[in-house]
Amino acid sequence: MFEASLAQSAILKKVLDAIKDLLNEANFECTDDGIKVQAMDNSHVSLVSLELRSDGFEKYRCDRNLSMGVNLASMAKIMRCSSNSDKVTIKAQDDNPDKVSFIFESSNQERISDYEMKLMDIDADQLGIPDTEYSCVVKMPSAEFARICKDLNQFGESLVISCSKEGIKFSTSGDLGSANVKLAQTTDADKDDAVTIEMRSPVTLTFACRYLNHFTKATPLSSQVQLSMSDEIPLLVEYRIGDMGCIKYYLAPKIDD
């Protein structure tokens, strides 16, 4: 038996919006600790790692570890049938379920709807993600990061991110011309609009702008985003999901031949 409830479906809708364009399907691994999803996009250029801890749910029960193969477009369709303020309960009866139920309850309890979704067999092994001490870790407003990715995507396919003591610079160029956005570190680190940089050594890396734009679908989840970079390894873009978990995107760099 698996059962997990959230007081408001809005958070689950945002989580799904953050991954559904990048991934077609994924296994939701449910354990006593919570729900984890790890999956790569079709081209295996990026990897999504999602964690929702059990203590962040209003109610959570997972008698046996289970893996639910989910078509994310189908789940998104179902989640769109909920109101943001609805309580949502995810329920699977068997230890090896072939379907999962979503129950939405309005705040006044006057409307209860349930949707059953067929599960899939997804043959996907997990990847081991090495612990890394990154050369640069930048925290910045998530809306600013989304704006930069959107603006610069108009100029070129590749985005160069350079990080140094002075700040972080995003650059691109293409047929139309070139574009640069520089952000300096702010003095007040506690505010939502703060830009903070922890640097061991400066880094310059090139990434496909298209994927970065996909990652910014997570913007509604968190006011801040964290970018972690080291030379010639994947960029880590991380959004917190309240106090209950986080969504991490890894993006393989483009390397000069």
């Binding site: 092994d125 081991g128 590749s158 994947p234 393989a252 483009k254 390397i255």
Partner: peptide
């Protein structure tokens, strides 16, 4: 020119 690397270039199967 630049080459797009894949995740497999960096992360191993667990």
């Amino acid at each position: 020119t630049t080459t797009q690397k894949t995740i497999h270039n960096y992360f191993e199967w667990a």
